[in-house]
Nucleic acid binder design. Sequence first.
DNA 1: TGTAGAATCGTTTTT
DNA 2: CGATTCTACA
Length: 704
Amino acid sequence: MGYRLDYAKDLNPAQLEAVRTLWGPVLVIAGAGSGKTRTLVYRVVRLVEEGVPPERILLLTFTRKAAREMLRRAALLLDEQCERVSGGTFHSLAHLMLRQYGHLIGYLRQFTILDRGDAEDAINLLRTALGLSERRRRFPKKETIASIFSKAINKRLSLEEVVAEEYPHFLDDLEDLARLFEHYIRYKQEHQLMDYDDLLVNWYRVLKAFPEVRREMGRRFEFIMVDEYQDTNALQAEIVRLMAEEHGNVMVVGDDSQSIYAFRGANFKNILEFPKLFPGTKIIKLEENYRSRQPILDLANAVIEHAKEKYTKCLFTRKEGGKRPLLYKARDEADQSRFIADRILELREEGVPLQEIAVLFRSAYHSFDLELELAKRNIPFVKHGGLKLIETAHIKDIVAHLRLLLNPYDMLAWNRVLLLIEGIGPKTSKRIMEFLRSEADPLEAIARFPARPSYAKGLQTLAKLLAKLRAEKIPEGQLSLLYDYYEPIFTRVYYDDYPKRAKDLQQLLAIANKYSRLEDFLADLALEPPEASVAEVETLEPEDEKLILSTVHSAKGLEWHTVFVISLAEGRFPSSYAVGREEDIEEERRLFYVAVTRAQENLFLTYPATFYVPGEGRVFSKPSRFLEEVRQKFEEWRAEESSFMLEEDLEETPSSFRPGELVWHPVFGEGKVKRMADIDKVVVQFISAGEKILHLKFARLERL
DNA sequence: TGTAGAATCGTTTTT
DNA sequence: CGATTCTACA
């Protein structure tokens, strides 16, 4: 049979075998940078070339972005029919299927998805209703309770097992927790609500209880591929097993050394159990690295060498040469930020585009200081990870109104909406909700509630809004109606910072206009939450080159020319939260491994010798244990070198400019001075980057 | 109901 | 230390 692609030429022997093995269960152990994505993409193409209809192929990935990207690449290699391959996350697949089959277990088509915050709100509500908040002080808080429930579900353990294992100090409260758990489960069912875990649980329930659905799945998805399998949990493994029961054509791909989601129930041992779940599994290992230079791999291999349990491979590359990773010991965080900014500007001058450089850190807040420094120097960046748009209070307010249109019995949304009206507090809100509960059409009934004069007007306005929203079918139109209504509330409730928040509302509108159906819009918002707009140094063109700041978790699967891993101090990376439990430290180590294997050419490691700890002020830090473990694998940056350069930098920028002068900036290039904006700020019109305000203290601006 | 002041926390990572 | 949550009172 003739193929349009020359597979043997494009792939190495192990990759080729993975691509050619179409039938039966396959486990691919793929080291970092070993062409895992390439292998998956080629396998999709191969299946399509073999005549498999694209929609019969199911590609499960960790984010939907990853799925889209892979299918785009497949389409480039072959043709656009590859875009028709079914792809997404476990959660999005479950959601899709439950819309279709949810009625089998008593759910309406338009159930509401609760995000983590909503779930916590519900738990809080029930905890108060059960009188568990007053009794003793020690009862766990809602975040903790939500975690306990979630762990139990995802690891398929009993509440008692989870509490005993991870929260032994709450063992006394086990009975109350169990009672609360039952109520929570019932509450969600009664109100047509599902949290993230329910999507998986309920889909599993359907698959388990209805053999005809399993058979239908087998026909619908003849070939299943799962990426990042090391980050799936026991429940997801079961779902895969049932989905593939009919034909057993399932390939999972992953790397046990890169498992970094144990906190949400993933278990890296899952990947090694796969052959037990599917007897006759063929195992293929990809060990050749195509990403990093040898010195970087040496360090990476040394990191994982220290792991307590390691089952696989040692990476090697044919990309010889390259620089050894560099460690910079900074005096403090400000020094660390300055060092990074200096190096970035240097690299930029050497011709490395900003989007080829990434700064990685353990927790979102570790980059705060750096963000300020970058803003001062006008280095554009985007940040991934951290706060999501949907998690901000004002966006939740808006979304709550929309949720009512799809699920009028969503009492969590009602509560939020009602509390925004002046004169309505928790008591009144509860009374109104009890009234609504027994109404056939709550959206219409709200106008008939016997309201007290103090809030009657507000309630009528809400009733009118809901009627108008219902008549409007397009999400974008609904949003603009909603913004008119919300505006006065918005300025009243968030008066201190509403201009900043208003930007988020605009962003939401921009997202909404891509949707024609409200249910799709809301589902995507919950399942694929857009990140909050932190992008600071604003540039006009969106595709402007920008430096990447990212949590290590959000950097998974990506790679850059140069990578900085910052704040490598005990308590930061590894997180203080993980110190004390060996398995948590092991996960931090894998996280560090993921971080360093993102680098192709250059790897910089930094840590501040002192940093601020709330309550204690400035404290001396200890270098991360992970640095100690791989001491021979990096070189230290010499301090004199950097302080010398600093002085030089300061001399470089003159202290004042005149309008009309031609100047040059390492990032923005050539420009003309318009005027001084302040004693130390100058406004420059750049030829390619537009107008910028630069701080003379930090910008390295030269006269031409 | 809404607010001001007091108490109390607790610092991750994400679908 | 800062933000969030609770308590007391108008």
